[in-house]
């Protein structure tokens, strides 16, 4: 046959790149431009959307990976957001000298310490959560939903026990307040930082998933768990590692989100979890790229409609989700085929 004559060393055909969904974001942004009217407002809204999208992505990426790899949807993820934020606050309070200092380096150092504390705390908590709550119910969706919901209730109540129920301030470091003006456009510093963090997480995640052995195993596990096990890898440990990493990312996202809102309550996770769920549904369960795109889309939609028609801002995201699901019922980039 003709095909056998071709040399065996040629690469496998590459999976075709599916770039169509990527164009939705710029289309939404361009459609919004004439509706918003003033370009300066539009730039502010777009930057705000990118910042919000980055934060949602940081939170959602862990959840979608956990789902893709382990087929576990953790409804308790919202609790990690809140607990991460509270832990960061606990670190920031004694460091208030650094936070209020005018030196950017001290501000960033304080923030870095807070983020590390939040991530270690939520990571450890994720480890415990996986052991106690999730492990006994692997493979049983109904019980998983119920039990992680129960975990959410208990975790939220424990926040009240440990930190008290009242609203707490979460002051933004001095150096990150205000905006940088470029020409006519004012770019808020914290939003730029959030975008940078989101992009970094995205890039690091892509590099880990696509360029390392662990990433290879994770991607293989998402595609076909039994086969990875059959090849002799302990996928259980991989599971636990991803769960811990995902929880730690929720802690990071929660810290950013609380700083963005500058206040903190135990319900902070619940507010954003709705957006996170919409994002991972839009992106396709288990897909990191889809999750990033979905986060940007949802945030763009939320910010533009929040400006144009604030009363229906939430409904707009539901409409976006419905529209995308009608186009691609499994989300933009479906990965987990279960």
């Amino acid at each position: 046959m003709a095909t056998t004559s071709s040399p065996a060393t040629t690469d496998l055909p590459r999976t075709p790149r599916d770039l169509l969904p990527v164009f939705i974001a710029p289309i939404i942004a361009l459609v919004a431009l004439p509706l918003v009217g003033s370009p300066t407002t539009w730039v502010t809204l777009t930057i705000a959307a990118l910042a919000m999208g980055s934060m949602i992505f940081v939170i959602a990426s862990g959840l979608t990976l956990i789902f893709g790899l382990m087929d576990v949807l953790n409804f308790g993820h919202g609790a990690f957001i809140a607990i991460g934020a509270y832990m960061a606050m606990t670190v920031l309070v004694p460091l208030s000298g650094w936070v209020q200092s005018d030196a950017l380096s001290l501000n960033l150092a304080a923030l870095l310490l807070a983020v590390i504390a939040a991530m270690i705390g939520t990571g450890a908590l994720g480890w415990a959560f996986e052991r106690v709550i999730v492990r006994p119910v692997y493979g049983q969706h109904l019980k998983q939903i119920l039990i992680t919901m129960g975990g959410l209730i208990v975790a939220e109540q424990l926040i009240h026990v440990v930190w008290g129920g009242d609203q707490k301030p979460m002051p933004l470091p001095n150096g990150l307040r205000g905006a940088i003006t470029v020409g006519d456009f004012a770019l808020e510093k914290f939003r730029l930082l959030a975008v940078a963090v989101g992009l970094t997480v995205f890039i690091v995640m892509q590099l880990v998933l696509n360029r390392t052995k662990v990433g290879l195993l994770i991607r293989a596990g998402v595609e076909n768990r039994e086969m990875v096990e059959a090849l002799g890898y302990r996928i259980r440990q991989l599971f636990v590692g991803v769960f811990i990493a995902g929880s730690a990312l929720a802690g990071l996202g929660g810290t950013l989100w609380a700083l963005y809102r500058e206040t903190l309550t135990a319900a902070i996770g619940g507010d954003i979890m709705v957006l996170v769920f919409i994002v991972i549904i839009i992106g396709g369960l288990g897909s990191v790229g889809g999750c990033f795109l979905g986060a940007i889309l949802v945030a763009l939609m939320a910010n533009y409609t929040g400006y144009l028609a604030p009363k229906i801002a939430v409904a707009s995201n539901i409409l976006l989700m419905v529209a995308i699901l009608m186009w691609r019922p499994q989300g933009l980039y479906p990965v987990a085929r279960r």
Partner: peptide, 21 residues
Amino acid sequence: RVRAIFYAMITLAVASAFAIL
């Protein structure tokens, strides 16, 4: 038509949007 988890998430989103609305 899709799985239980999808339905759970979608209803969660719709219900919270309805409450805010």
